[in-house]
Simulated assay, not measured.
Amino acid sequence: MRRWLIKIRKEQQYTQQQIAHGAHIDRAYYAQIENGTRNPSMAVASQIASFLNINPSLFFADHLSEPFETALSNSPIVVAHCDLELRYTWVFNPHPDFKMSPIIGKRDDELDQNPGTLAMMDIKKRVIEENNTIRETISFPLSDGLIYYDVFAQPLYDSNNNIIGVATASTEFSK
């Protein structure tokens, strides 16, 4: 069962039929994808992802290479993608404060309002506006205190070399 997909569908207030229609697939096929009895092809995953404004890699997250997942799980590194509206389309290894809340489809300021989230949004905006990478230190007030991250942000491009969002890799460190 792809609970994350059901949750995104319900948050965006779509029916299975509306998503299937928007992705140009049969509703029964979409239902099978949602309940986990069928896996979509990359093309179908891309069509659904485009309709829901998410990253198609979410459909294949269970198949991340074991070395990558083993190396980064429980590490002080958070990797994420966002779209041009700064809404998360993919997140790997978020801080424990955010593991239980819905992140996909949300902006930083919708997850929490603090100087750290506003600074993170500013970095992403500048990456998009300047079409350039940015690396800065940001502090976030989290449940375990003030946490500092070395944030590396770079543009994400489509196959036509148009900017479609921002990729970030944030490493926690002690100050």
Rank of each mutant, 00 (worst) to 15 (best):
L86P: 02
N39I: 07
K106I: 04
L146V: 05
R38T: 00
I103E: 01
L52G: 08
S174Y: 12
G105M: 11
N74G: 10
T137N: 04
L72Y: 02
L146R: 15
K7L: 00
R126G: 00
N93S: 03
L86Y: 05
V166W: 10
A167F: 13
E34Q: 02
T168V: 07
N160P: 04
Y157S: 00
Y29K: 11
I123N: 13
K125P: 02
L111P: 14
I6V: 14
E34V: 00
D108H: 14
E69Y: 15
Q17A: 05
Q13Y: 15
Q18D: 14
D108F: 15
A80G: 06
N74H: 13
L111T: 14
N131Q: 09
T171Y: 14
D83C: 06
I164W: 10
K10Q: 13
G165C: 01
N93D: 00
R27F: 00
K99A: 11
T89N: 02
Q113G: 03
F60C: 01
Y14Q: 00
P94A: 10
V151T: 05
P94C: 06
E172F: 09
D83R: 13
E136G: 04
F92G: 07
H21K: 14
P67S: 06
T89S: 05
F152M: 06
R107M: 00
T133R: 04
K175P: 06
G36I: 01
